[in-house]
Structure formats: C-alpha cells, structure tokens
Amino acid sequence: MYSGILRGKLKDFLVEIANMASFTILTVKYIFRRPFEFSEFRRQSFEAGYKSFSLISITALIMGLVLTIQTRPTMAEFGAESWVPTMVFISVVIEIGPVITALLFAGKVGSRIGAELSSMRVTEQIDAMEVSGVYPMKYLVVTRVLATTFMLPVLVIYADFMALLGSYIGFTLHNNISLWLFIREAFDELYFADIIPATIKTFIFGFFIGILSCYMGYTTNKGAEGVGMATNSAVIMSSLSIFIIDLIAVQLTQIIL
C-alpha cells in the first residue's frame, strides 16, 4: 500500500518537474519574441529592485555589523584583528551577501509575483489576455523573470557595500580606523576570481526566483485557496532553489578555478 502511495507521489513530483521545465523553455522562447514589453519590464524592475532597497539596506547593514561584532573578539585573541575587514568582506561577497539577499528577495518579490499572478489566474485576467490576442507569457512572465534576473545582482552588490558599512561601524566600536583604510583592508585579499562566480550566481538566483514564482502563480487552479498556496510555494520553492544552485555553484567554482 505504502509503495503505491510513494509511486503516486513520485509520479506527481516528476510531472511537476516536467511542467516546470516546459514552462521555463516556453519563457526563454518568449524572451526572444518581438516586440518586447519594455514598459512592463521597467515597471517590474522598479517593483522588484527599487522597492527592495530599504529592506536590503537594513538587513545588509545589520549583517555586516553582527558579523564583525561576533568575529572581532576571536580574531583579537589570535592577534589577527586587522584581518577582520578582509575576512568579513570576503565572506559577504562570496557567500553570505548573495544568499541572504536572494532569500530576502525570494520572500519579498517571489511572494508578490506568486500572489499577483495567481490572483490574476483565478479572476480570469490571464484568460482575458489570451482571448484578446495578447501573449500573457510574454507580458506577465518574461518581464517578471527578466526583472528579477537583472535586479537581484544590483541588489546584491548594493548589499555587499551596505554590509561593508555595517562592518566598519562594528569595527570602530573598539578600534580607531578611517573608513578609507578599512575599505582598503577589506578589498586587499579580494580577487576577480572571487567576485565573478559570486556575481554569476546571483543572476541564476534571480532567474530561478522569477521563473519559480511565476510558475507557481501562473499555473494555480484552486480559487482563493490556490492564491495562498501559490504565494507560499513561490517562496518555498525559490528559497530551496537558492540553496541547491548555491551548492552546485560552489562545486563548479572549485572544479573550474
């Protein structure tokens, strides 16, 4: 009996994966179909990017501050206090910055996309677009996926610098150092080989947050209950994908570099 249930679950899971894959392929196909919905892309970029700045600012500042406050005493014990800016900044740029920012982004933007598209689906707005000769995939999905893909890297870079500022504030609670010297110390051991994979990773995070949130919203079919489920699934799936992509990216970076 249990093997039958398991088989059923596995089948459902594989069908869902196949549907997600075909949705992704369709989205990529529509990216190249002219004319491009530029004004909607601009609006979505504003919604995803600009409206996330305050959340990212506060979180990244605290992240840098806390990391520094917690690391400094241990480093000081080993007489390596001067390494704190470098250590904190490298860990923020390579790992913590992209992952934390992407998780926040998935929570804020992914949930919005999931809720918006699913409510459009249940109120037949997507069907209305389709019957009036408009391609909803192009107007609704492509613009959102591109907005998340291009806005997340911008937010991550911004978050890195806010974390650096937070780290400086934390460091100056016990040490007297100029901001300029602190920045120089932070960048001292940072190489392009560290920055490039981390940046590429954020584009992939952004793409998957967009595509999974759109998929969850676009394919919902259970009325008001479906809106809640789509919003929830958009955040869960996006967050999960961030960790999976991060794991793959770390492995690939180690093989390539």
Binding site: M120, T123, E124, Q125, D127, A128, M129, E130, V131, S132, G133, Y135
Partner: peptide, 19 residues
C-alpha cells in the same frame, strides 16, 4: 489561433478587468 481570436470577443463572468 491568436490571430483568429481577434475576431472573437469573450465576456467573462466577473468582467476579468486587469485590476
């Protein structure tokens, strides 16, 4: 199909206006 749909109007139950 999309081209043909321009000749077919559809009034949805709730109006389905873009909110």
């Amino acid at each position: 199909l999309n081209k043909l749909r321009k000749n077919i109007g559809f009034l949805f139950q709730g109006g389905a206006l873009y909110d």
